[in-house]
Design a binder for these strands. Structure first.
Length: 545
RNA sequence: GCCCUCGUAGCUCAGUUGGUCAGAGCAGCGGACUUUUAAUCCGACGGUCCCCGGUUCGAGCCCGGGUGGGGGCACCA
């Protein structure tokens, strides 16, 4: 009787081949593969088997990992009378005449199945051997035993087709490898690569850890606009769009910061938001146009407290991801993070004291140059030129800096940090007290002129977090915005726009606060040991193909 | 935006100086096989060598352009 089925199959394949070849298949080989599965779909329906039933929940199947855990002590050859119900995708098949071994994969793991012709009805056995393909979704009721080779196995007593796969899965050994296809057809990557599934499971656990820890400390999760009438809270170029009914320009947010501070003004006191930000900039292994951040704001705290909380949260995230601190090159999020000031760390790396000019001030923003012996030369320059001279005195440093003569003091300070310090910051490090010009939303440093109470946290050579003692003096904030407006008029596309609604909110009275933003994607890259941001974002932005 | 690099069967990959170079494994198809796990064995099939143009007696291979991926620079998190 199987011969008759094979006969019918040959005819049916011939029939559907011509259809498929015209439609979607790009080659005869592909058309044959698709036609064979289409035929089996027809044959299933002819036999009265629903290839797409509604559910498999009575009773619920167990996660495969739970079944494995329950029997991990059984010795090879052990038989049991225990029944288990599982469900998943058929990943592999090893046939041996009247018997076959199959591998079933679900979200939690993989397990071996056994189908025997003398255990199953003829109908059920032929379903498995003739009409079920790799990639199909199956529900299994069966009996637990351990094979002679010691593999925990479910002997199938009842198989239920849960969904027919009409396209073949990738290579069963290598999975889907082509990076382009992995990103464009992530579902195929996920179903065929356990490592990819593991990354996104870890990502979910990382975000859940932030939520859990912040909620436990009395923080409220809030949602603020992603479509904003004015963008702010970071230095970046926005996406611009238009709302028809309101007939106005809207921007996709580049950061939630300003709205979250307005929540502080409103008395919510401890708030956080996890969500997407959008920046209209280039793509790279570290950049995507939409990315996920978490920002939290804590009233009555300042930036040292914010650093303590960041250490705690990131450590909790690492644990949630199952990060292995004993592995080669591990980043020790579990140890206290190094804390060093911007000025100290730049001097350590380059020998240049960013604040040296302060000792030679002669008033009116002028500073007197001294010679190599420290003797005054009488030459007066501004702060920018003073630092440029210091850099030029170190040729090894100067040759790494492009357009040295065009750079202002804060730009040059940032450049020195980025070039000589950041790449070497593998272990978690807080860099504290940034120049005020680089930090328009941070409070001035309580003791050092020209600096702010800000830190950026680095690990693996990348920035992972940014925080301030939040500026809450509305008049000072207004002056900072005005300075940004001047940079903007000077051609800086990323200078922050003046936000009067935000300043008025500060006039209402914002409590002193510490605020932190963490780039979730980059943290996930590190905690899952991924190579690029595309590997931790399910559906990354790509060119149209 | 600029520079470098890659694109071969549904999937994973070979392909030498330009001359049996249209190849293998997996998957699929037909068959054998009741403890395998990269199952094994036999058989037949399967190709827009990314696209367009050029050089050449001859191009998967060389050249030009395009396109998509990857890497780097710049900008940024």
């Amino acid at each position: 009787m199987y011969l008759r089925a094979a006969d019918k199959r040959a005819k049916s394949i011939a029939r559907s081949l011509s259809d498929l070849a015209e439609q979607e298949a790009s080659s005869r080989a592909e058309a044959e593969i698709l036609a064979a599965r289409r035929h089996k779909l027809d044959e299933l329906r002819e036999r009265g088997v629903d290839p797409f039933p509604y559910s498999f929940t009575d009773p619920e199947p167990e996660p495969i990992a739970d079944v494995r855990a329950a029997y991990d002590e059984l010795p090879a050859g052990e038989e049991t009378d225990e029944r288990r119900r599982i469900a998943g995708r058929l990943a592999s098949r090893r046939e041996q005449g009247g018997m076959a071994f199959l591998d079933l994969v679900d979200r939690s793991g993989r397990i071996q199945l056994q189908a025997k012709s003398d255990v199953l009805s003829q109908e059920q056995f032929s379903l498995i051997s003739e009409l079920v393909d790799l990639g199909d979704l199956l529900g299994i009721d069966g009996r637990v035993f351990v094979s002679q080779r010691g593999e925990l196995t479910i002997q199938i007593e009842q198989v239920t087709l849960l969904a027919k796969a009409l396209r073949p899965p990738p290579d069963k050994r290598h999975g889907l490898q082509d990076p382009e296809t992995k990103y464009r057809r992530r579902e195929v990557d996920l179903l065929s690569n356990e490592e990819s599934r593991a990354v996104f499971i870890a990502r979910s656990h990382i975000i859940a850890a932030f939520r859990r820890e912040l909620n436990a400390d009395g923080f409220l999760e809030v949602e603020t606009p992603t479509l904003q009438t004015l963008y702010g809270g970071a230095a970046a170029e926005p996406f611009v769009t238009h709302h028809n009914a309101l007939d106005r320009t809207l921007y996709l947010r580049i950061a939630p910061e300003l709205y979250l501070k307005r929540c502080l003004v409103g008395g919510l006191e401890r708030v956080y938001e996890i969500g997407k930000n959008f920046r209209n900039e280039g793509l790279s292994p570290k950049h995507q146009p939409e990315f996920t951040s978490i920002e939290w704001y804590e009233a009555y705290a300042e930036y040292h407290k914010a650093a303590d909380r960041t250490e705690h949260l990131v450590r909790a995230a690492a644990e949630a991801a199952g990060y292995d601190y004993t592995a080669e090159g591990a980043i020790r999020f579990d140890l206290p993070w190094r804390r060093v000031t911007f000025v100290e760390v730049v001097e350590e790396a380059t020998g240049i004291d960013l604040l040296a000019h302060l000792g030679y001030a002669v008033g009116d923003g002028q500073f007197e140059i001294v010679d190599a012996n420290g003797d005054p030369t009488g030459e007066l320059v501004d702060q920018d030129e003073f630092l440029r001279r210091a850099v030029k005195a170190k040729p090894k440093v100067a040759k790494e800096i492009d357009n040295l003569d065009q750079l202002t003091w804060p730009q040059l300070a940032d450049e020195l940090l980025g070039t000589f310090v950041e790449p070497a910051l593998i272990q978690p490090t807080f860099i504290l007290d940034h120049p005020v010009e680089l930090s328009p939303l941070a409070k001035r440093h309580r003791t050092i002129d020209g600096l702010t109470e800000r830190w950026e946290a680095y690990a693996n050579g990348q920035e992972i977090a940014n925080a301030f003692s939040e500026l809450n003096d509305p008049d000072e904030q207004r002056r900072r915005f005005e300075a940004q407006t001047r940079y903007s008029e000077g051609g800086d596309a990323e200078a922050q726009p003046y936000d009067e609604a935000f300043v008025q909110a500060l006039e209402q009275g914002m409590p002193p606060a510490g605020g932190v933003g963490v780039g979730i994607d980059r943290l996930v890259i590190m905690l899952t040991r991924s190579k690029t941001i595309r590997d931790v974002i399910l559906f990354p932005a790509l060119r149209e193909n």
